[in-house]
Deep mutational scan, measured.
Amino acid sequence: SKIRITWGDKTWEWDGDDEEVWKRILEWARNLGDEELWRHVKEWVDK
């Protein structure tokens, strides 16, 4: 399956939905430097 994140007018996609993928997404969000996006992603990961 895919994980799709839409933020503003951008959309990103990742293949898979296991823990490793979420770790990569969390790292990606942090590297993007958008605090609010990172917080949202972290909330999803922690669920």
Rank of each mutant, 00 (worst) to 15 (best):
E27W: 06
H40N: 09
D17G: 15
E13L: 04
E35A: 08
D46N: 07
D46Y: 05
W44A: 05
G33Y: 06
T6H: 10
K23H: 10
L37V: 05
V21L: 08
I3W: 03
R24Q: 10
E43D: 14
E27F: 07
L32M: 15
V21M: 05
D15L: 09
E13N: 02
E20D: 14
R30Y: 14
V45F: 15
I3F: 03
E35F: 04
D9C: 04
N31R: 11
E36D: 15
D34R: 01
R30K: 11
W44P: 00
A29V: 05
E13K: 01
E27L: 11
G8N: 11
W14Y: 03
K2S: 10
D9M: 01
E19K: 15
E36I: 04
W28K: 00
W12T: 05
E43I: 07
R24K: 11
L32Y: 15
D34L: 06
K47E: 10
W7N: 02
I25W: 01
V45A: 15
E19A: 14
G33C: 08
T11A: 12
W12N: 03
I5N: 00
V41T: 01
V45G: 05
W12E: 04
T6K: 08
E13W: 06
W7K: 03
A29Q: 00
E20C: 06
N31V: 11
V45M: 15
W22M: 06
T11L: 08
W38I: 14
W44Q: 07
G8S: 03
I25E: 00
E27H: 09
K47A: 14
G8V: 03
D34H: 04
L37K: 01
W38C: 07
N31F: 10
T11I: 13
W14T: 01
W7L: 05
D18R: 08
W38F: 15
K47C: 04
W7F: 07
W14I: 04
R30N: 08
T6V: 11
L26I: 09
V45Y: 15
R30G: 07
L32A: 14
L32E: 15
R4I: 14
I5F: 15
E19R: 12
V45E: 05
E35Q: 07
D9I: 01
R4V: 14
S1L: 15
W44D: 01
H40D: 06
W28M: 02
I25D: 00
E19H: 15
E43R: 07
A29D: 00
E27S: 09
K42Y: 10
K2M: 08
R39T: 09
E19Y: 14
W12C: 01
G33F: 08
W14P: 01
W7D: 01
G16V: 10
A29C: 06
G16I: 12
V41I: 14
D34A: 04
L26V: 08
E27T: 09
W28P: 00
L26A: 05
L32N: 11
E20Y: 12
K47P: 03
K47L: 12
A29P: 00
D34Y: 07
W12R: 02
W44Y: 09
L32I: 14
A29W: 02
D17W: 09
G8C: 07
W12K: 04
K23N: 10
D18M: 13
R39W: 09
I3P: 01
D9A: 03
N31D: 13
D34S: 06
D46M: 07
